[in-house]
Structures are given as structure tokens and as C-alpha cells.
Nucleic acid binder design. Structure first.
Lengths: 190, 190, 190, 190
DNA sequence: GATGAATGAGATTTCATTCAT
DNA sequence: TATGAATGAAATCTCATTCAT
């Protein structure tokens, strides 16, 4: 008797990401997923008890991955601006290098698939980022306005930029990245 | 003789907006729409030949409305910053006062419903906004970097803010609005 | 107050014939008919109380027309063979010159539209033809076998021939017609 | 693992034939078919991607069957008349013993279901029959007129006879069959 | 565990007929 | 009478999920 196959989880996840990037969350059926993953529909139900569960699990995994990458190399001892810049770059890098995950996450937020519980867990993962902003404010390096305003502004602008970069197909030069960071930094600095 | 009823178009559109705001684009059926609009399912097909066509038509109408409102009162004679501020406020106002339309538009972008043609028409409507930014650059009031970078940044940050404002339920004070505009302006000014 | 318009009956009938010839009885909707006839759907119901009634009325009219034409110029004084030949030619001519009517009648026979009553009336109209065959038999000019076998044979072969002639598009020369009549005559003659 | 069930194809086909014989092609729904076949509606779509495809597939199968039976036991060494008679009897037998198939084929010809491709394949299957007639002509046993005229005549008369026999309910005696063959043979013989 | 056929509820769409103008 | 929008039952088709192998 075989055990559940970790590679199959990965294949299923990859299939979903690919399909969502191509056709959107709405148009994606369990049949599409199984075909793309190269397994039988029935097998999907060996790994996930329902479509909802599958989407929520992938959502959680992507969210986790996103945060892990975003805070990679963060060192509270480092001065604020370079530390912030690092994290900003990490967030950008995550979105560009894992564009399908990023799109999937975006599509999920306003979908009926994601449960309140999953949503709440996702929110909790943003706390380190809020803490970072608070640190910047306490060091009087960034504007002393509502943290959520700042966080939302930073993330919102970046999300749109990433989509624009991806779909326009324009190469992302170092100078373009710097310009973009400067937009963000000039917005929020004290 | 009974003629096609313009009010019915409006009722159908309103029904869709309400449903998308409540349940998302994916979970909305033609049955839901007809029930919400208070008409028979078959009647929907008197007005729109398919669900796709209905969604695309509403998308186009919302896009149109959004642009009309955004440029309301624009006067090229006015100095740049107040003109820009007006438009920025208009865009914000449209999103807040027509939140359902705004959410609908957002949900549509990455859905399989919107056709390439509809998408292209939507893009064309953004041109006045690009022109405005170019004006600001020629007057050396805003950064001389790629226009699309600037436009994307402005719109992206605002979109996220609007959602945050709406869902957090926090009242939008005059001071909060000003803070938000300042974030934007400081980001892009030369 | 206007009276029912005889021209409209004709237009409706013509529309049905055209549509059945093009797409078959099965695929034809009341909407198709009204569009083809250049009138409103509702108007169809001024002239016929239902689709069934419309089909049955047209069926009866075509059947009538077919018989009238078939026996045109029949003169019981005339010797049998030329009389039979005349009628055979009439039947052929009706089918070729009113091909759409012919196809419509064919399609109706095995459709659920035609009621038992209509069917019975149609059968009655065939009686003169049976009588003609009986006359031929009594004059010992045609085979003395079951009349219905003969009638069916004559009509069945002609029907298929007409379709073949029509769809193959081959011109119907005098010699082809003669060959065809000879096939029939040689089959049945005593 | 469950595999697609050949018996189910047969059950679906049998259901369609039964329904068409009873209610005609036009009045038959996918729901009727599934009920008659004793399976779920959805299951029909496991076997056929649409109603059209189902009808076309059954049409092709019946056509194939019809030709196979018609030429059963054909032996080119046999003298022409008995060989022709055998085939004529086969064709008659097919129509009588598979009356539902025969009616289904008849109903399909002028329906909007049958595609041009299916129609063309059906035409190709008639070629051996045409060849047989040509052989009879080269042996100067049957009239030297256009082959299609002869073929159409033979088949057309038989089709109508079969229907007449079936619906009149009159028993088909050996003598009736012989009379019928004689009608045909006398028509075409040189 | 893996498969993919089977299911049936529910989605979209059609269409004969009715109705308000 | 003429119109064509309005209706809703019914048709086709889809799809998450189950089940037999």
C-alpha cells in the first residue's frame, strides 16, 4: 500500500497556479486541474477533501512562502532604510519570480473560496511588516500617519507595478527598479 | 407595442453589481441575477445574448463611468498641482461612492469573461490620465521617469487604499484623505 | 380595425417552406418563422393558435395542392396509358416545381406535429390514385397484385428520384424523364 | 478502475432508436435518452460530447451496419441476377428486421444534426451498390441508363414499401416479397 | 492509493406562448 | 391587428464529488 505522495501535492499546486494565471480562478474546474497535473480527478480527492480545501491549502502555502521570502535576511540590527529596502526588494522579487503565486493570491482575496479562518491567518502573517513600519516611525524616518495607510500604500502600489511589469513584458532594469523604490520611499519618508 | 426598457438595463446592471460585491463574480449565476433584478431568467437573454456579453457590457459601462467622473471639472488652464489633485480626488471619490462598480471592475480584469476587445477599449480610456502625467513632467513638477510606472503606482496604491478603507470600516476623515494624497504626491513630485 | 390579411398567410407558409428545406422541420422555431416572414412572433399567433396548428394547416394546404396538380387534366375517357403517364408527369412536376412543399410533406409524415386527423385526411386524398391503378388492372394493363404495393412502389421510387435530381443539380432532360417513366411503367405493366 | 463500457454505447444507441421510432427525432431530448437507457444524463456526456455527436455516431453505425448486412454473402462469381436478388433481399431484410435503424436513418437525412462529413461518409458506402449495377449493365442484363437513376429508383421504391409493410401491419408473405422483387426487376432489366 | 466512469444537482440557454402597448 | 418584450418551463450541458475496480 502506497503512501500519499509529496510530489503529487506539488504537481497539483503547480497545476492550479498555472491554470489560474492562464484562465483565472473562476473558470478553473477540478477536471482542468487533474488534467494539468497529469492525474485522475478521483486522485485529487485523495489529497484534498474538496475544491475549497485545495484552494485554501494552496493559499496558505503561498502566503507562507511569500512572507518567508519577504523577510529573508532581515536583521533588526541593520539601520532602517537599507533593512526596509531589502524587504521591499524581497517582496518585489517574490512577486516577480513567483508571479503565478502572486496572481493566485490576488484572485483568492475576493473569492468565495477563502474562509474567514484562512483570511485571518493570512492577516497575522503581515504583522512583522507592520512592526517594521512602526520601527521606521519610531526612528522618525517615515511619516507618522496610520500604519495601515502606509502598509496598504506600499503593497498596493507594488502589486500594480508587478502586474504592469509582467504584462507589458518590458525588461526590468536595475534603474527601473531603483526608480520604483524611490517612488515608494519618497512617498513614505518623514 | 412594448419597447426594450432602458430601466431594465439599469436594473440588471445594479443586480450584478450588488451580487458581485456580495458573492464575487465566480459565484454569481444568471438565476441569481434575474431574481435580484426582479425579472424572469429568459428576459435576461432579451437584453444580453449571453452571460459573457452581459458582463462585458457592464464592464464597459463602469469603465466609461469611472473615466467620466475622474475627469469631471478638469480644466487644462488650471495650474498642474490643483488640477492633478482634483482628478486624484475624483478617482478616489468614484471608487468610494461606487464601490460596487470598483470591485466589479477589479474582479473582471483577471477573469475569463472579459474579451481582448473589451480590455483594449478599457486601456484606451486611460490615455487622458497618461497625458495628464506627461503634462506634469513637461512642467517639471513630477519625476521624469516612465509614465506607465507613475500611472501604475498612483492607481495601484489608491485601489488598495480604497479597499482597505471600505473593509476596515474606518471613517474617512478629511485629514486621512489629505495624508493619503500627500503620500501619492510626495512619491511622484520632482 | 384591420381584418386578417390573406397575404400574411402566404408569407408565413412560404417562410416555413423555405426554412424546412434549408434546416429541416426539427430545427425550426417560431422565431425563425416570424423573422423569415418579416412579421412579429406575436402576429403568428393571430393567424394560428399554435405551432402545431400552423404546421398542420400548411400540411393540409400542400397535400391539397399536390393532389390538385396531380390530377389536373385527367380525363377518364382517355386511354389508360397516356392518362397514367399524364398523371405520373403531373406528380413529378409538382414535386420538382414545388420542391420545398414536397420536402415539407415528407418531413411531416413521421413528425409528431401531424395529428391522426390530418393524416387521415391526407390518406383520403390518395384514393383517386388508387382508383386509377385499379382501372389499369381491370383493363389488364398493369400487374394484378395488391394495389397498395403498386401505389407505394410508384410513389416511393419517384420521391427518391426527385430528391436525387434536385440535390445532384443535374439538369432534367426530356430523355432522363422518359427513362424514368419507363422504369416505372416496365415495373408495373402487366 | 472502471473503463468505458461498450455495453453502454449499445444501450444508448438502442434507447435513441426506440425513441425515434416512437416520437421522432425532433421530440427526443437528452433526458429522454438517458431515462430510456437507464443512466444519468451526465453519463451521456461521458460517451458523447454533445447531442449532435451522439446522433452522428449512431447514424454512422447504422449506415455501416446497413451496408454490411446488404452485401453479406455477395460473391462476384455468382451469376448476376441471383446475386442481385440476394443483395436486394438483404437490403429488404435489413430494413424490416432493423426497422428502427431504418427509420432513424431516414429521419436523419434531412435533419440539421447530420454534418456534411457524416453525409459524405454515408455516400461512400453506397459505392459497392453502384458497382453492382454497373456490372449488371456491362453484362447487358439491366438497362443502360444513368446508374444513379437506377440506384435511386431501386432504393426509393424499397424504402416506401418497407414503411408501408410495417405500418399497414400486413404480414409479408413469400409471394408478396416475390411480387415486390419482380416490380423492381422488371423496372430495371434490359 | 489511483483511476476515470458515473452521478445528479444546478448552470446556461432556448423557445412556444402570452401580454402590454 | 401588429408588435416584440416578457415569461418560465424545459432543453442542453457542466462539474464537484462519489464509487467500483
Amino acid at each position: 500500500m502506497k503512501l500519499k505522495d509529496d510530489k503529487k501535492y506539488a504537481r497539483i499546486f503547480r497545476a492550479v497556479l498555472k491554470l489560474v494565471a492562464k484562465k483565472g480562478l473562476a473558470g478553473m474546474t477540478m477536471g482542468d486541474i487533474s488534467k494539468e497535473a497529469g492525474i485522475a480527478t478521483g486522485t485529487l480527492y485523495v489529497y484534498f477533501s474538496s475544491k475549497d480545501e485545495l484552494i485554501n491549502a494552496l493559499f496558505a502555502a503561498c502566503r507562507e512562502n511569500s512572507v518567508t521570502i519577504s523577510f529573508k535576511g532581515y536583521n533588526a540590527q541593520q539601520p532602517f532604510k537599507p533593512a526596509f529596502r531589502n524587504i521591499w526588494m524581497n517582496i518585489l522579487r517574490y512577486r516577480l519570480q513567483n508571479f503565478e503565486e502572486f496572481i493566485f493570491l490576488e484572485q483568492c482575496y475576493h473569492s468565495p473560496y477563502i474562509t474567514a479562518a484562512t483570511r485571518e491567518k493570512a492577516r497575522q502573517l503581515t504583522e512583522p511588516f507592520y512592526a517594521l513600519i512602526t520601527r521606521g516611525q519610531s526612528e522618525q524616518l517615515i511619516k507618522n500617519i496610520e500604519t495601515d495607510l502606509l502598509a496598504t500604500f506600499i503593497i498596493g502600489s507594488m502589486n500594480e507595478l508587478v502586474k504592469q511589469i509582467h504584462y507589458s513584458g518590458i525588461a526590468l532594469t536595475r534603474s527601473r527598479i531603483n526608480h520604483t523604490f524611490d517612488l515608494c520611499w519618497d512617498a513614505i519618508r518623514a
